[in-house]
Design a protein around this nucleic acid. Structure first.
Lengths: 274, 274
DNA sequence: GCGGCAAACTGATGCCCGTCATGGTGCCCG
DNA sequence: CGGGCACCATGACGGGCATCAGTTTGCCGC
């Protein structure tokens, strides 16, 4: 599945990215989509995914099977919503393939992006148990497949396997720490620092080395507006920062990707103004 | 206990706050300390506290007793640290009496205050299970009594009573939502709005009506620097905002207290710039 | 009561960045 | 291939607020 790269859009076929060692022209796209077509996840694949979910690590085959029976698989096109803020929170989701962004609506329209989720991660469910409605909106960044389980069924699973609940507690706690450090950073840092930090986080989570020779490739369709929503800024400011970073040879960007060329320099920028 | 108001500092005795219907001079102190002396929590009081902890609600007498046996009670003077960021996270704490602030150290020295905890709330433990060290520092705002339990023991309790784990999950999730809405607010709002929001939150959590006739009294030793650390600002800016609020008759402040006089106006300021 | 100190208040200054506006560039569609 | 569109880039401008500095207030010890 990972090798079967197929052209995503209807444009002219690109050269194999593996062979094109250099990016002669900026904005040449080194994309390697792994999954562009909606599909139904067959049973064996679902089991494999469940086994890789950190929350379910170490569970017996039988237990996983029991969980799988309570789940259904769903696929979403780019931009589709898994759920919206205010919807009754009846389901918990696990990302099987693709990426999902969660965003928190604000009164003034300045939504902020809370997180971008990779396969194996959860949404919705962890914010659910006590609350009747979702507090955030979840939207597929690319074509995405997700598994869904009812909150009641998930509750049963947690009661049956308390160690899963403990791990869930850890997960949410980690999110909490992340959110809190985010909050402090928003208060003190400049936009450049916040953008740099965000890029480093994305690189750590989604970055893939090699590919186009040097640098870390982040293959996500993030617009300037998206980055602005992640850093608590505006598209214009983000654009300026990115331009500067490009000029300094720290990053390179394209329509649906970002590449970090100088990891050290970016770290320096994130830590303290250069 | 609640009626036994005793003068806290060594200054001249104040008139009984109940009788003084008006605050003729700004900065007249309407303090009513409930507990100024360090003390050991006796067994019955500990049991009563445990029963009131939301996390343990509905547990049997026997279960509570089992939990109590694994805990020890400790008392702290104002400014004492329960633990510091970076310490090995071996314990979970429950605030029995007093208030505790948790603060997150930043590299530039601009620490930010994460939360202020009232009796019945948890610290440390929920951020512990997966991590070897504390990510934040906990400091007693006033003379405080706390119960302590080892993380391993708490883990056993959670495995024994999975419903507690579920409730803990809810608790942390609530904190997460709070932290996230905080984050979005930092990005978009002005300092005045953030201060107003913070005051309203504190009033909801620690405010007591009556006392000096009108208004909601928040009895916490919060300096301008503390409020700045809570709102992601500076002491000077907070001071300006508070001066303005005082001038407009919205709040009144003293050395160790804050009183909200016009709740509606403060809400209006928090929502949108006046 | 007096001197020392910490915290709070207030003014001046500059900068970051949000806002508005304009021009440029790739992408889609007919 | 050309028009329309969305996104990006870049400049100009202004305001909120952080920073620095100076004064005042309240508190404590001698």
């Amino acid at each position: 599945m990972s090798e079967a790269a197929q052209n995503s859009d209807g444009s002219a076929p690109k050269k194999a990215a593996r062979q094109t060692e250099q990016l002669s022209i900026r904005r040449r796209s080194p994309l390697q989509h792994t999954c562009t077509q909606p599909h139904e996840c067959p049973k064996p694949m679902r089991m494999k995914i469940l086994a890789q979910v950190p929350l379910f690590a170490g569970l017996s085959e039988l237990a996983l099977d029991g969980i799988d029976h309570r789940m259904v698989s769903l696929s979403y096109a780019e931009g589709d919503r898994l759920y919206s803020a205010g919807d009754p929170a009846n389901y918990l989701y696990v990302v099987a393939a693709g990426q999902v962004k969660t965003l928190q609506p604000a009164l003034n329209g300045n939504d902020s992006i809370l997180d971008i989720l990779a396969p194996g991660e959860f949404l919705g469910g962890l914010t659910v148990l006590g609350r009747p409605v979702y507090g955030e909106t979840a939207m597929a960044l690319v074509t995405t497949c997700a598994l869904r389980i009812g909150t009641d069924a998930f509750r049963e699973v947690l009661l049956e396997y308390p160690e899963i609940a403990l791990r869930a507690l850890d997960d949410v706690t980690a999110l909490l720490q992340e959110a809190r450090s985010d909050t402090s950073q928003r208060a003190t840092s400049t936009v450049a620092q916040r953008v740099a930090t965000t890029l480093l986080q994305l690189a750590g989570k989604f970055g893939q080395h090699g590919g186009s020779g040097d640098g870390t490739l982040i293959q996500l369709p993030l617009s300037r507006a998206d980055l602005a929503a992640m850093t608590g800024s505006t598209p214009e400011s983000v654009s300026r920062v990115m331009s500067q970073l490009r000029k300094d040879g720290v990053v390179d960007t394209g329509r649906r990707w970002t590449s970090i060329l100088d990891h050290n320099k970016l770290t320096a920028i994130a830590a303290a103004e250069e």
